[in-house]
Design a protein around this nucleic acid. Structure first.
Lengths: 194, 194
DNA sequence: ACCTGAACACCGTTCAAGT
DNA sequence: ACCTGAACACCGTTCAAGT
């Protein structure tokens, strides 16, 4: 390394990357602004220029988390072929895998601070939820999903995946059963209509 | 008040009660051992006799939480009459209401610390899960629920409720829609077999 | 057996001052 | 525009000592 200049230059992005790693390894409790500053080689007050307080850092992490989750879910849909059940299973698998690999991040993404999440986080989550909405509408048109308010059915689908992830993360459901649970859940949603 | 004696006498139970209240009002972040000690009128080191560290207090809260949730769920089953859908809806309603009223407590109950929860917490949660298991078996015998491993179906049911609660708590699902979501979920599970 | 008081090593947050 | 260093008010945890 050359001599570290007075101006770090990319402090914000470094802090975020380091925070994401710490979050994965130590959980949300182990995340400290002072520690992040130390790891980045700046004074403990430096992060303040980029994140007004600890919560602002957490919000930025949540925002990035939603963006990445939406990417992964959309990629799963795109790569799943035409069969609707397979598409649904691919989405659920992507979601639950994200949730178990980055459990602390997901917790943070869905943490309700005060009166709902700030706008930036909300906007980032929007893309994910509309992807789900589209998938639901598509399934209803094909007659594979039951009729009814697609928004509500989408929420129910997200809730199911969120719940499966919560049970696995907390050790109440064996990790080896997650695929079976997803299959069961998909079967529940797509049971033949008439 | 009479002069506070040197020995508090019921410090443990007072700390737990105060902690549960703080948890509801301030969330898990706002829970401090030193603050609890202050509110109980003892020195900051006094709680240490009853809870080895902060995590031990959280575990005790989780344990009590599971006991209360099991009580409320069992009471809901008992008071719901004979109709199976009504029983299922009553259970789901009781669960989700608990989850939204004591969101921070539920989060704590399902927090995965290290390699799964300690035995005491696990035991306390057992009663809840067996109550669910029994309800599932009953529904399968009556032909109201789909066949298959009742343990897995029970997990899926818990996951669904847990997920609905998470979405409502985080403000992603409107609170006014919780009853509709529960009804949808119950309908999904009990869709007529053949 | 239970509680106190001082001590230690951490936090987040603030703010004048430096570059 | 960005960072530093000192300061403040908090934490959890430990431990000798008190009752």
């Amino acid at each position: 390394m050359t001599d570290r200049p007075y101006h770090h230059g990319r402090l914000r992005v470094v802090l975020l990357a380091e925070a994401e790693r710490t979050l994965r390894e130590q959980g949300i409790e182990g995340l400290s602004l002072r520690d992040l500053a130390r790891q980045a080689g700046v004074s403990h007050a430096a992060p303040r220029r980029h994140f007004a307080d600890r919560q602002a850092l957490l919000n930025a992490l949540a925002e990035a988390g939603f963006a990445r989750l939406a990417d992964e879910v959309c990629a799963a849909i795109d790569g799943a072929g035409e069969d609707y059940q397979a598409r649904l299973r691919a989405v659920a698998t992507a979601y639950v895998h994200f949730a178990t690999r980055d459990a602390a991040l997901l917790e943070l993404m869905f943490a309700a601070k005060n009166a709902g999440p700030p706008d930036a986080v909300r906007d980032a989550s929007e893309r994910l939820f509309t992807a789900f909405g589209d998938l639901i509408v598509q399934g209803q048109k094909a007659g594979t999903l039951p009729p009814g308010d697609p928004g509500r059915l989408g929420l129910l689908l997200v809730a199911t995946m969120q719940g499966i992830a919560a049970l696995v993360t907390s050790g109440r459901a064996p990790a080896g059963q997650v695929d079976a649970l997803i299959t069961d859940a998909v079967a529940l949603f797509t049971r033949s209509q008439r």
